[in-house]
């Protein structure tokens, strides 16, 4: 595993060795890493977002549920629980959906809200690989750290790299 610091050190996360970092993520997306290509199979990936959130954690997540159900095809929410995320109160969501290429994907999301900044770590893999790959992806969630003393996220990784 390789540790990356994101958003000016606000967030640090571990990613599997050898995964490819996508170089041009959208605004608010701090990191996208994908597993190596395997014969056209869905590539497991980790996505970290840090966004400004001007509402309560509960309202933020209710909105997220509505958004995901509306945007993702064949979406099925399977589990949702309150838990500590990155050392702070948060929640975990488990869902499955179909991609535009009609692949079945299972996604776990860990999210927390700190001083108006919402942090989400999403880990996706092929559904039939979830029994094995899911555990590896959960390692990243276990090692997610959020430093409340970092006031001004810059959006750029400050250390490390994905080999």
């Amino acid at each position: 595993m390789n540790t990356l610091e994101l958003a000016g050190g606000f967030v640090s996360v571990e990613v599997p060795d050898g995964w490819e970092q996508v170089s041009d993520p959208y605004p608010g997306i701090e990191l996208v890493v994908v597993e190596p290509e395997q014969e056209g199979l869905f590539r497991a990936n980790l996505v970290v977002t840090v966004t400004e959130v001007a509402m309560s954690f509960g309202d933020w997540q209710k909105g997220t549920d509505v958004f995901l159900a509306g945007e993702l095809h064949d979406y099925l929410l399977l589990d949702l629980e309150r838990m500590t995320v990155g050392g702070h109160p948060g929640a975990r969501r488990l869902a499955t959906h179909a991609t535009a290429e009609n692949q079945s994907v299972t996604v776990q999301q860990w999210m927390t809200l700190l001083d108006g900044r919402g942090v989400t770590l999403s880990a996706s893999c092929a559904t039939l690989a979830f029994a094995t790959a899911g555990a590896q992806l959960e390692q990243s969630a276990r090692h997610l750290r959020i430093d409340p003393h970092v006031a001004h996220p810059t959006g750029a990784p400050t250390a490390g790299g994905v080999s």
Binding site: D74, L76, L77, L78, D79, L80, E81, T96, A98, N102, Q103, S104, A126, T127, L128
Partner: peptide
């Protein structure tokens, strides 16, 4: 049904979803 969607189908037929832990 696409074979990779069989677990989803089972989840829908059994109404697997949010439950208290």
């Amino acid at each position: 049904v696409g074979t990779e969607f069989v677990p989803t189908l089972v989840a829908r037929l059994t109404r697997l979803g949010l439950r208290p832990h």
